[in-house]
Design a protein around this nucleic acid. Sequence first.
DNA 1: TTAGGGTTAG
Length: 611
Amino acid sequence: MARPPPSFKTLIHRQNPPRTIQNPNPQIRTLGGGSEEFVQTHHQSKLEGLTQIAKEVSKVIRTRPRWERTLISDYPSVNFLDPQFFHEILKQQNNAFLSLRFLYWLSSANHGFVPDKLLCSVIFDSLVEAKATNAAKSFLGFVDFTPQPDSLERYIRCLCENCDNRSIEEALSVFDYLKEFGFCPALETWNSALFGSVQAGKIDVVWKLYGEMMDNGIVGDVDTVEYLIQAFCIDNNVSKGYELLRQVLEDGFVPSNVAFNKLISGFCKDGKYSSVSALLHTMIAKNCRPDIYTYQEIIHNLCKRGVWREGFRIFNDLKDRGYAPDRVMYTTMIHCLCEMKRIGDARKLWFEMVRKGILPNEYTYNALIYGLCKVGYIEDAKELYKEMCCRGYKETTVSYSTMISGLCLHGRTEEACELFQEMDEKGIARDIITYNSMIQGLCKELKIRESMNLLDELLEKGLQPSASTYTSLIEKLCEMEDLDKAKILWRDMQNRGIEPAVCTYDFIITGLSNKGYVAEGMEWLNAMLKSGLRPQQQTFERLIQCLSRADKLDEVILVLDYMFNVGYVLRKSICQDVVDRLCDKNSLQTLHIETCLGFIMQKEITAPEVF
DNA sequence: TTAGGGTTAG
């Protein structure tokens, strides 16, 4: 994997060096030449005639839907295969798509037109200018033509603006093609490739590209720095990004708010609020006023970490200071209040937003629907869902999953099942969250077979299960003492490389204990502790109870020891149970019992009060 | 209206 560059000391120069690497590929260098010569060999009068007909034909192509069927019979005297005529059409049309359609028609088997390189070049450039990258790509596949490096650079930049993975892949492959032929793209193109890679989350590619930039003697600018800072943040290396920021600030360059906001967001995620504060001060000192995006990052992250009061305080404070929260900001705050079950406050914000003329969108609707479901106002949630649909917002995987999980949470599993079916009928994709919510709901009602069917179904569909997919299934199987099936699921999870939720161990240990398989329970407990996981107190207690009932006193002492080491204290009821059990034994074991009791008493005194 | 931000389980 490519590593981030070790130093940025010489990253920015005011003036970029000239592009010294020349294209050694004669094929690329000669493309597109000869147009002047071409034009000069024809008479002016012929040109005027062609122009007139091209005007008419262009109009036909523009306005008549099925012009392909009649064009030749309508203009029997026109030689459509004359390249010069096509050039005239291009001039008249000034529409890349129509020209391309005309070219495809002319080139089809019946007509057999072969466009010259100049024509290809004009069409390709106009497609790129119209940002029609898909058409440009299909055009390249259709003709035997390689655009000039400058055209390819524009194509790369256009592809990188698209921000989707396929475009970025294509851009990078064209980029590699240029480099292969020794052509060194301009800084603007390097930057757009960096931008595209950042957008696509391809951080390896960012470092690779940056390494190549340095190798080629290309010196970045403030945009380059911005993309590198973003790359560091995505790589969870926020402090390295901050270091880079400080370096360029020292050199007198100030990146845009985007870079600052990414760093702030990264520090918020890490809970490093002193760095957030320092960054806010730096922004103000550098005349970059923290904007709505800056505060939205802060509020969003505070709420995610459960510090909703502080988030709400900042939100209200911003309004007092004259910031106008927008729809996203309102949605973030409403969602956060919903998460905290502050449904009254969330509703107030909703109406405040509407009063200000900001219309809720699908995100806002889903956030409040989620909140209403969470507190059990299912009817209100349904009502709002209807309103959302009436307003023209489409039902989505998220909207359905929100309702399904809300219904399941409040025991209305049948209604959830109906919605689950409806999704299929309406062609709305179910994702792993939809399945997990439904599986949880069904498990709660002990409908294990239905849940297992859903697990099979999601696997068949090629969805990647998560730990939650298995958690409730294993929990219920253990509760129902079907330990064999629970263990099969456990192994299945492990084979798929899914890290089980910690509580899954607890369920299995408790299940084994309840079934009297205490030795195996001990094995699982040991495995759990060895992995540094913390069992729940009830897990220890249940195992201790079952061990003591099975007269396994040594193991009781061992588990008690583990439990105290983890930091739990022995509750009275369990203590009583164990002591009763010990005192029940015959006199031969008196000495041993005394030792045990002594051990318990001693630990009881020294164990920490609260954990 | 430069970019950059928001919704579903556990």
